[in-house]
Computed example of a mutant assay.
Amino acid sequence: MARTGADGGDGAGPAGAEFDPPFEVIEPPALTSPVVLSSPHSGRVYPERFLRSARLDPATLRRSEDAFVDDLFEPAVSLGLPLLRAHFPRAYLDLNREPYELDPRMFDGRLPAYVNTRSVRVAGGLGTIARVVGDSQEIYAKRLPVEEGLRRIDELHKPYHAALQDLLNRALRRFGLAVLVDCHSMPSSSVTGTADPATWRDERTKADFVLGDRYGTSCARRFIDVAEGTLRSLGYVVERNKPYAGGFITEHYGRPASGFHALQIEINRGLYMDEKAMARAEGFDALSRHLHAVVAAVSEVAAASGGPERMAAE
Results as ranks from 00 to 15, higher is better:
residue 145 P to L: 09
residue 105 R to I: 01
residue 92 Y to W: 13
residue 182 D to H: 01
residue 228 E to L: 11
residue 135 D to C: 12
residue 232 R to M: 04
residue 185 S to A: 03
residue 27 E to N: 01
residue 267 I to H: 00
residue 31 L to S: 07
residue 5 G to Q: 01
residue 201 R to E: 12
residue 130 A to R: 12
residue 244 Y to G: 00
residue 262 A to R: 03
residue 258 S to N: 10
residue 5 G to K: 04
residue 225 D to L: 09
residue 194 T to C: 14
residue 193 G to P: 07
residue 137 Q to W: 04
residue 306 G to Q: 07
residue 218 S to P: 02
residue 253 Y to A: 04
residue 207 A to Y: 10
residue 12 A to V: 02
residue 233 S to M: 09
residue 164 L to F: 06
residue 101 E to Q: 10
residue 195 A to G: 12
residue 308 P to V: 03
residue 281 A to M: 05
residue 120 V to N: 09
residue 56 L to Q: 04
residue 245 A to V: 10
residue 169 N to E: 15
residue 280 R to A: 00
residue 5 G to M: 03
residue 234 L to H: 09
residue 277 A to L: 08
residue 93 L to P: 11
residue 310 R to Q: 13
residue 78 S to Q: 14
residue 196 D to Q: 07
residue 243 P to K: 10
residue 187 P to M: 06
residue 51 L to M: 11
residue 251 E to D: 12
residue 223 F to C: 08
residue 242 K to A: 11
residue 48 E to M: 08
residue 134 G to Q: 14
residue 276 K to F: 09
residue 84 L to R: 04
residue 78 S to V: 15
residue 40 P to S: 06
residue 198 A to V: 04
residue 74 E to N: 06
residue 244 Y to N: 00
residue 240 R to F: 01
residue 34 P to G: 03
residue 146 V to Y: 13
residue 297 A to Y: 00
residue 269 R to Q: 13
residue 134 G to T: 11
residue 95 L to H: 02
residue 12 A to G: 13
residue 290 H to L: 02
residue 213 D to V: 11
residue 83 L to A: 11
residue 259 G to N: 10
residue 309 E to V: 07
residue 219 C to V: 02
residue 266 E to Y: 04
residue 221 R to M: 00
residue 45 V to R: 09
residue 160 Y to K: 06
residue 4 T to R: 11
residue 49 R to S: 15
residue 44 R to Y: 06
residue 260 F to V: 02
residue 123 A to R: 15
residue 61 L to A: 03
residue 294 V to K: 01
residue 68 F to D: 00
residue 2 A to E: 14
residue 81 L to H: 11
residue 236 Y to C: 08
residue 118 R to V: 06
residue 75 P to F: 05
residue 288 S to C: 10
residue 307 G to K: 07
residue 284 F to L: 03
residue 218 S to A: 13
residue 169 N to S: 14
residue 311 M to G: 02
residue 124 G to T: 10
residue 133 V to C: 12
residue 308 P to T: 04
residue 78 S to R: 14
residue 230 T to H: 13
residue 122 V to D: 08
residue 153 I to M: 11
residue 72 L to E: 08
residue 202 D to S: 13
residue 60 T to C: 05
residue 97 R to C: 08
residue 24 E to P: 06
residue 245 A to L: 09
residue 94 D to I: 02
residue 7 D to C: 07
residue 310 R to E: 09
residue 233 S to T: 14
residue 35 V to G: 09
residue 21 P to Q: 01
residue 314 E to N: 02
residue 157 H to P: 06
residue 266 E to R: 03
residue 211 L to R: 08
residue 158 K to N: 12
residue 76 A to V: 14
residue 69 V to Y: 00
residue 66 D to L: 02
residue 271 L to G: 01
residue 152 R to I: 03
residue 191 V to T: 14
residue 186 M to G: 00
residue 123 A to K: 13
residue 143 R to H: 11
residue 203 E to G: 05
residue 147 E to N: 05
residue 146 V to E: 03
residue 162 A to H: 13
residue 195 A to W: 02
residue 134 G to F: 15
residue 174 R to Q: 15
residue 154 D to K: 14
residue 20 D to T: 10
residue 8 G to F: 00
residue 251 E to P: 05
residue 150 L to T: 04
residue 133 V to I: 12
